[in-house]
């Protein structure tokens, strides 16, 4: 049995909206193993993105304990959490979230600026990450000069540039056509398979979820269960 990458105990998150308290995560208990590819599914409002944000250290839980990659995130303040994110997590968002005024290369190099790497080393890492996603020849292009699928691959390159153990993807194929979506899913599966990255992917799409080794289901802020997927499709397609 591999070690736990994510451990949540009694995780609760509430929002105030229009004078009403909305419980988005309600005492969630969860454990995810390192080196696996998880799909996080559930209806809208079930707390998927909120859970992803808490695991990624973008937000704090109101109650409960959350340990990710051996670090208890509740004990970290804003700056410590930022440093932790830079070292441990790579994000892939539905809307790609590339900085439009920077080239593909510069977007990928951005998180590397938070490391002690030299300029030459940063360049090497960024080029390698872009090569891995098949976009080295487009590294000088701005995001708006790329297709949606290419933008998402650049975002994946940025997510892996610092070699984090954990990649969090929020609906990474939500804005893509089927062909591009399949390329992205295959890429994520490859990162998990060849580089042992732990991947947690929020998705509504059962086809995308089929790429994962396990499917985590949430409903009304509570865990419904974790099902193993015996034959992940992208994994098979990659072979």
């Amino acid at each position: 049995m591999s070690e736990a990458m994510i451990q949540a105990r009694g995780l609760t998150k509430r929002y105030q909206r229009g004078g009403e308290t909305l419980v988005v995560l309600d005492g969630l208990d969860l454990e995810m193993q390192a080196g696996r590819f998880y799909a996080l599914m559930g209806p809208s409002g079930s707390g998927k993105t909120t859970l992803l944000n808490l695991i990624g250290g973008l937000d704090h839980a109101d109650e409960g304990e959350l340990v990710v990659s051996g670090e208890s995130l509740d004990e970290l303040d804003g700056a410590e959490l930022a440093h932790w994110r830079a070292a441990n997590v790579g994000f892939v968002f539905q809307g790609f979230n590339l900085i439009p005024v920077l080239s593909a290369f510069e977007n990928v190099e951005l998180p590397l600026k938070l490391t002690p790497l030299s300029r030459a080393e940063r360049r090497k890492h960024a080029e390698y990450a872009l090569e891995l996603v098949g976009l080295k020849d487009r590294m000088r292009h701005r995001p708006k000069q790329l297709s949606g699928g290419q933008e998402q691959r650049v975002a994946i390159a940025r997510a892996i540039a610092t070699d984090p153990k954990l990649i969090l993807a929020d609906e990474p194929t939500g804005d893509l056509d089927r062909k591009s979506a399949d390329q992205v899913l295959e890429l994520l599966a490859r990162l998990n398979r060849e580089f042992q990255k732990t991947i947690l992917m929020v998705t509504h799409d059962p086809h995308a979820a089929n790429s994962a080794q396990s499917v985590v289901r949430l409903e009304k802020g509570q865990l419904q269960g974790i099902e193993d997927n015996p034959a992940p499709t992208a994994r098979s397609a990659g072979r």
């Binding site: 932790w84 830079a86 951005l110």
Partner: peptide, 15 residues
């Protein structure tokens, strides 16, 4: 605002 959000997600501090 959105770019700042991206930077913060990548690990850039408030400072």
């Amino acid at each position: 605002v959105h770019d700042v959000g991206i930077l913060k997600a990548l690990g850039f501090t408030d400072a």
